[in-house]
Amino acid sequence: MTQSFDIDSFIRSRKQTRAVSDLLKAQAADYLTTLAPLVRPQPLFGEYLQGAPKGSGRETQHHFKEFRTLFDEHAARRPFNLINELEVPLNIISSTPDLFPLEYDHALPDGSTIRVTSPARWVVGYTSFDLGRFRQVIQDPNRSGSELHRFVVHYLMLFHCLSRAPGLGRLLKGLRFPVSFQQLDDFGNLPFCVISSPVTSTLPADEVIRHSTEIAGNDSFEELIAEDAIDAMQDDLRERLMRALREATSR
């Protein structure tokens, strides 16, 4: 998008973006809630989780060893610098998935940095472990080590459960809300689960971002969803069926 700044058209784009984003997020959350039992940690970890029933000894031991390796790989590194070790059984306070805004930094030509929010992608976390609060705890010099430890454990637990359920990824992709794993600004190399929507959002020209943030008096901005992005939505199943028809008739 390279449009010049026009307040009326920008406000219209913001309203359209918010309406579409709210609908998309509600749909993604509904899918995630329905599929949540498939990524519950209790069946994977059994007695290694506090209050969970005993599971298959070899399998639960395997998952715990993998998780401990994952924790050791990330917890002691910046920006967490945790020295706490995992205590068994693990105390997983919440295993209900939730969606949080995906944010990243965007540098403007004048050297300033804008915090950008995506209206079409969301970070998957557990209820009661808000991603914004996680970021605040990391940046707080007087932070609670135990609270930070809980955040790291819960986000790594969700990553472990989702990454060990490839069938769930294929299912969400078929529903047009694919899952990916990526690192986020402010969280070092910690892997996060991100759900994307079938509609793409983009940033306008830097000049538009600069005008918007100056008028709003803040350093945050939300990507915009254009009408042509909805027109450009692809239906993977339709494309596969059409390709099958073409291949069948060319034999």
Rank of each mutant, 00 (worst) to 15 (best):
S196W: 00
P89S: 13
P41W: 03
H160A: 08
R143T: 07
R58S: 12
A19I: 06
I83W: 04
D140W: 13
F80A: 10
L102W: 10
P198Y: 01
P97Y: 02
S13W: 06
D219F: 13
D8V: 02
Q234G: 02
P101C: 06
Q182F: 03
K15P: 00
H62N: 10
N91F: 01
D8S: 02
L90K: 02
E239F: 12
V152C: 09
R170K: 09
N81K: 14
D140G: 14
A205T: 07
C193A: 15
Q183H: 11
N84S: 10
L38M: 06
T34R: 06
L23Q: 06
D185F: 14
S196V: 04
G145A: 08
T127K: 15
E222Q: 15
P191F: 03
I11H: 07
P89H: 13
C161D: 10
R14Q: 06
R170F: 05
A75Y: 07
R121M: 06
F192M: 06
L99F: 03
A226S: 09
G167F: 04
E47D: 06
E222P: 03
F71K: 05
I215L: 09
Q50H: 14
F80R: 05
Q139A: 15
G132F: 03
H63L: 03
S56V: 15
E66M: 05
D185A: 15
Q42S: 15
T33H: 01
R78Y: 05
T17R: 01
F10V: 04
V20G: 05
A28R: 02
C161T: 10
F192P: 11
A75H: 12
A36I: 03
K54N: 13
F100H: 14
S196C: 01
A26K: 06
L171W: 11
L32G: 05
L203P: 02
R240S: 08
G217W: 01
D72G: 15
L224N: 12
V123A: 12
Q61I: 03
L241W: 11
T117Y: 11
M1Q: 09
Q183M: 11
R18M: 03
A120G: 02
S9A: 11
T249R: 15
F187R: 07
F151G: 07
R251I: 13
Q136N: 13
Y48W: 05
T96C: 08
S95R: 07
